[in-house]
Every structure is written in structure tokens, then in C-alpha cells.
Simulated scan of single mutants.
Amino acid sequence: MKLSHLVAQVLPLVGCVVATPGPDPEAAASKRIDKLQKQYQKYIQGTIKHRTTGCTKKKILERKEWGSLSKKERLNYIDAVYCLASKPAKTPASEIPGARTRYDDFVGSHIQYTPFVHASGLFLPYHRYYVWLYEKALREECGYKGAQPYWDWTLSYKDPRKSSVFDGSPYSLGSNGVFIPNRDPIELVIPNTPTRVFPPATGGGCIYSGPFTPDKWQINLGPIGIPPTGPQGGLGYNPRCLTRDLSPVLSLSTRPTNVTALLDGCADLGCLNIQLDTPDGGVHGFGHFQMGTTAFDVFISPSDPVFWLHHAQVDRLWTIWQNQNPAVRTSQVWGTQTAGNFPPSDNATLDTQITFGVIAPPIKIRDAVSTIDGDFCYIYD
């Protein structure tokens, strides 16, 4: 008798039960996110279908996930980022003496307004307009033809080193940092919140391959949010390399189930804002934290070009969430006008002003609540 036949006869007699794998909650969550995105796209496409002015079908820009771009498209984007960093700064030296490039103008704006646009009612609208301004600068000042891509960290939450964003190829945004052993934990200072300590991960040094290596990219401002603070309070000229410390531990908090907890679990904008940055798994915070080093510093985090892809992803989630109930959620506001309401400030309203320094005139929150009205005309593909 063949062994397989014998096993088939014996197993029922001994009561052996062969376990079968249960449903994968992360796979199910990914499918849920895809479904909600398709619903959102259908709503946007239907809304602009018959428009002849403003944001129309012909004008709308499609923001795509980095990994879905062709190699040529990625190179075009990278070239545009280099272009922006090759142009002179417009920021007055009296405001930010260390600013040297047009790219520094954007980092400088983030430094100036960090105490107001994080952990406040300005967080989502500020960053939506901020990323759009960056996209606009790449297109109008550097000839970029595409839209701002996003980094869907749910695709690489198990290990960001395996993401096409960080694989170190010419078509990535650079590699991990060189591994530095025996490092001390990093203390992270965020305005009006308790200091947090993070263990070192898999890198820590300068990027060693792909774009934005030390011979191609330079950070000029900071540090501010990570001790020791740079010269002139972090506003002085402090040239150094871009560093990363990719963490396959901290990245676990950007898993799909944490995203569906936002999209399905939050009925109002207050919930969404709070859950985006919860200490035990907020996907906005841990999107930064998994990159380590430069991205830890909330003030100068735009110094890492991946910042823009990360915040496009955050904006994508806000947009999908809004369009589950657009009549109610598009114009919702929440929170005060200072980080953690310190110092105490008025509640945010649709007429609350958001400022951007030299990169753009002020706007009101109402100007940044819809991705297909006002200055905006884009969709997440």
C-alpha cells in the first residue's frame, strides 16, 4: 500500500485535524482600501463629468503611486526635484539665513509654520496646499509634466527597504542610510507634545546609492526637532548629507488595517486627525518614523524628498475619507490654530487663514477642502 493511502486511512481514525490558514486581515483591508478608492474615483469623475470650466476631465491631474510610474516618469520627477534645488532661494536672509535654494524655500516654510500646522485644525489643509504648491513649482519652474506621486506605505509595511521608493536604484528616491552600529536612541521633539525616544534601526548614515546621495543632494537647514539644534536655532547654513534609518519595526504601524481603521472607523474630522497621529500606530507619524533620522525632525522633514510622496499619501486618505460622505465631510473643520492648542488659540473655521511665507500668498481653510475646486484639480489613481 502506498504511504499516501495509508495516511488517508489512519488520519480519520486518530482524529487528526489538519489546520487551514484563516483569512488574512491585512489582505482583506487592502481590498477594502481599493474598493473605497474606486468609489472615490467614481464620485470625482461623475462630479466633473459635465464641467466646461474650472476642474474638468481634460485638465485633471492623476496622482499615481510611485511603483506604478514608468522608469522614465520616475526619472523625470527626480530631475525636476534636482532642478528646484539648483535654483536660488527667495527667502530673505533676515528670516532664514541658511536658505540657499528654491527647495530650501519650501523647507523654510515648514519650519516657520510647524508650531501652527501640526496637531491642529490646520494640519490637513496646510499640507494639502503645501504639497500642491510643490507640485506646481516642479511643473511651472522646472518643466515637469506629470503629477505629484504618492508612496503607499501599506504596500511595503513589512519592510520599507523592499519598496521601490527606497531600493537604491536610479529609479528610486535613494537607498537606506549606511549602517552605523552602537548608536544611541533618538529623542524626537514635537511642539507641545511629550518627547519620544526611538531605537536605532537598519541604517543611520548618509544615503549610499541611487538619487540624493551626498554627491547629488545637500540639506542646508536644521536640525531643530532632533538635538543638537543647528546654528542660529536651526535657521543657519548647515550643509550635510541626507540620512535615513529605515525601520521594519516602525513601518508595521502603516499596515492596511490601520488605514481601514481610519477610513471606516472615523465619522468626523476630529477622529481622523487624532487617529492619524496616535502614539500607538498613527499612520502619518509612523510614515515619518519608519524613515528615521532626517524624517524624524518634524521641522525640516521636507528635506527628504520622500516627504512629498508621504504627505500625498496622507492627503489621498483624507480625500478618500471625505468622499465617502462628501456633502458632510468636505467642509468639516476641527481643532484650534496652534499645535496641541499651545498657546491657547481660537477654533479653526473655514475662514481661518493659513500662511506659507515666500512660497505663496495666504489662503483660507475653505480654499483647501476640495481637490477639484479652487486652485486644485487632481485625483488619486
Results as ranks from 00 to 15, higher is better:
residue 241 C to N: 03
residue 278 T to I: 13
residue 270 G to H: 08
residue 306 V to D: 00
residue 219 I to T: 11
residue 330 T to K: 14
residue 318 W to H: 15
residue 341 N to G: 03
residue 245 D to C: 03
residue 224 I to L: 12
residue 254 T to Q: 02
residue 254 T to H: 05
residue 266 C to S: 12
residue 334 W to G: 02
residue 235 L to E: 13
residue 355 T to L: 05
residue 262 L to F: 04
residue 302 P to C: 01
residue 223 P to F: 08
residue 308 W to D: 06
residue 256 P to M: 03
residue 327 A to S: 14
residue 242 L to E: 02
residue 356 F to I: 00
residue 297 D to F: 09
residue 226 I to Y: 02
residue 218 Q to W: 07
residue 223 P to M: 04
residue 334 W to H: 15
residue 237 Y to Q: 14
residue 233 G to Q: 11
residue 294 T to W: 00
residue 230 G to R: 04
residue 348 A to N: 12
residue 231 P to A: 07
residue 328 V to Y: 07
residue 290 Q to C: 08
residue 216 K to C: 05
residue 247 S to M: 07
residue 260 T to E: 05
residue 294 T to A: 03
residue 334 W to Y: 00
residue 303 S to I: 09
residue 310 H to F: 01
residue 281 G to C: 12
residue 255 R to G: 14
residue 295 A to Y: 04
residue 217 W to E: 01
residue 284 H to T: 02
residue 325 N to F: 06
residue 280 D to I: 04
residue 329 R to M: 02
residue 296 F to K: 05
residue 246 L to S: 02
residue 309 L to M: 13
residue 293 T to S: 03
residue 336 T to G: 10
residue 316 R to N: 12
residue 253 S to P: 00
residue 233 G to M: 03
residue 234 G to Q: 10
residue 256 P to L: 03
residue 233 G to E: 02
residue 322 Q to Y: 11
residue 231 P to I: 02
residue 317 L to H: 07
residue 266 C to L: 11
residue 347 N to W: 01
residue 347 N to C: 04
residue 219 I to Y: 00
residue 268 D to I: 07
residue 278 T to D: 04
residue 249 V to R: 13
residue 254 T to P: 07
residue 227 P to T: 01
residue 250 L to T: 01
residue 289 F to V: 07
residue 279 P to F: 01
